[in-house]
Design a protein around this nucleic acid. Structure first.
Lengths: 359, 359
DNA sequence: GAAATTTGCTAAAACGCTTGAACAGCATGG
DNA sequence: CCATGCTGTTCAAGCGTTTTAGCAAATTTC
């Protein structure tokens, strides 16, 4: 009476059951009809429900029908019922402004996938309106949660709407502690590791060319340098800390000042400065690592691995940040509200620091 | 009788109407109740239906109710009804293997967003199974279509399942012509532009250091070189075409051979080779651009813009590829099946080629 | 061999929304 | 004043799933 769909038996339909048409996808109902069971049964079979009692023979028939029709579940319908999707949103303020950001996406995507989630990304280029829209979109699509990431490590304000979702800050943190979960690189440990590469190379007079731009990295990387020296019993000499704009030109330009310091090794705030410094040292007829050893920070592959000589440096763990963000979001990793979780920056040793032989 | 939900008037519910609880989102129905209308009306107001006749006063009340409750439509429910989502899938074989890929994502994301679509990305790292799963997932989420992209320009096989969706190949193409829409960089034009930079610089004897690795780029960039020479009336000299592995070491290693050719300018297959060549030329005491002018290809920012001197090169239009892919998918741009659409590689002139004064 | 239990399956409601048909009330035209 | 046409709104079906309660048949228990 109500539904005349079940043309069970009564001729007419020549069972053509063609494969999914792009516009008319195969539904559960059609599978059920072909298998001669109810949609409930098909659903139970598909989802391999533990305590569902289905005869092997039936299960078999359903499986065949599914294969025959090329059935694909409609995730939207599923989500409607369950209330939350298998999406994790990733809001980035610069997907590709830097080669780095890609790695955050990459890490997040891999980890999300591992747990059955797909990544929904939005690039906002820092535009507040776009950001708001992006978050709204994600909320509408019932994402499981949102990763809010920045392309360089910095404090950030938390957009109002973000609080409507479950979220984790990635590569950034809230200035007001205790209000958001966050994961950031461990700059101090990184700075320490960088310095230690040089210490292991036998160097005692080590300069640090820091950036002029205020950032957590600036403070952290300096702190790491001091910690390393202290641990090695070398007094900190403020005169050995220079500052320059954090790019090639900055590194190049710092060469002269550096040479006045009479050091045997330099730790640069980042790889780009190191790249500039390479040019500067070369112009002064100095060779790396024999005359001066150099380490950078960031491990920007295209640069670091291919300079001549290849640059020893410290990796910014972007991939790991993305992955850790997802784990924290899903509650798989501890995610304290009080302070950001710090991810280690592993040292990457290459030829820009000579191996220390004997004492 | 059927529904006892409409507690219209009959006491009991103390109209607390709190704002959206994360677990219990506000629904259309609640908005309707608060505004004292039916859900149909609310829906009509929200979607600003053209031929819906709604009194201004009603419209007003609904709008207020929405604001008051902080209502957010459930996109999944919407999609269920309409049949297709506002998603565009992007399958990439290396999201961040290279800084490039990020730009494809970026371009696709911006363009998609512009048309009200969100990007669903999946990184497969070339893994076939992952790829299949990713495409399946996208199909289940009823994506409007899929962008299938590779991190370097190359022919590709089209996964079986991809054909179940509307799709466009980005930065790759099908070896069997006429079977898929595709968008790729115009390598030949790029090679020609690169060579022309040198020709404009007054150079006549121009070497080309090509890659040893077979790829459309290898053929296209060489063709462009030949086209440019021909247009300038310079006979092609096979002796001026060298080959090397396409990285810094390759460029560096090609220096000696190059110097035997007695040329005044070099066009390198890519920026990384140019970077290596810089080192090689420097070691030979040659200066760029005075002794030898250099152009690269790819415009890999971190390298090209910051070498000393900055490198003239040609951009791979990754951002545009992503954007064009989306437009083709949505039917906004022509998308012939017969052959891939080619996107121009614009020249980027920097200081590695001196300006030509006088003839 | 009746009662109790287990097995295999289905009916139907629910998820939140859209949309065409329908309807009441009112104004207009003849 | 009846037919007609608007206007503003609601009804109710439907989108493709999941899931709980329930039912008939088969099997076991005593």
């Amino acid at each position: 009476m109500i539904s005349q769909e079940k043309n069970s038996g009564n001729a007419a339909s020549p069972i053509v059951h063609a494969k999914a048409d792009r516009a008319n996808p195969v539904t559960l109902r059609e599978v059920a009809e072909l298998a001669g069971v109810s949609t409930a049964t098909v659903s139970l079979v598909i989802n391999k429900k533990k305590n569902a009692r289905i005869a092997d023979e039936t299960r078999q028939r359903v499986t065949e029908a599914i294969a025959q029709l090329g059935y694909r579940p409609n995730a939207m319908a599923k989500t409607l019922v369950s209330g939350t999707s298998k999406f994790i949103g990733l809001v980035a303020d610069g997907v590709a402004t830097t080669p780095f950001a890609g790695q955050i996406i990459h890490g997040a995507q891999d980890e999300a996938w591992k747990h059955g989630y797909a990544l929904l990304i939005a690039n906002t280029e820092g535009n507040q309106d776009l950001e708001k829209d992006a978050i709204a979109m994600m909320l509408e699509y019932k994402v499981r949660g949102i990763l809010y990431s920045t392309w360089f490590h910095r404090p950030t304000d938390i957009p109002e709407t973000l609080r409507e979702a479950d979220f984790v800050l990635v590569n950034c943190f809230s200035p007001e502690a205790g209000t958001a979960r966050a994961v950031v690189p461990d700059e101090a440990q990184g700075g320490q590791s960088a310095t230690e590469i040089l210490l292991r190379g036998g160097h005692r007079r080590i300069a640090f060319i820091n950036t002029t731009t205020p950032a957590p990295a600036r403070d952290g990387r300096l702190q790491g340098y001091r910690n390393a020296l202290e641990a090695a019993g070398i007094p900190f000499d403020a005169d050995l800390v220079l500052e320059a704009y954090p790019d090639q030109e900055g590194g190049f330009g710092a060469t002269d000042e550096l040479l006045k310091r009479n050091v045997s090794a330099v730790y640069c705030y980042n790889d780009r400065m190191a790249m500039g410094l390479y040019d500067g040292l070369r112009e002064n007829g100095l060779s790396i690592p024999d005359d001066i050893a150099v380490v950078g920070f960031d491990n920007q592959e295209v640069i670091a691995a291919h300079l001549r000589p290849p640059l020893s440096t410290v990796s910014l763990p972007h991939y790991e940040l993305g992955a850790a963000g997802v784990r924290m979001l899903l509650g798989l990793d501890a995610a304290p509200l009080e302070s950001a979780v710090k991810i280690a920056c592993p040292a990457v040793e290459r030829a820009s620091v000579a191996v220390h032989t004997a004492a």
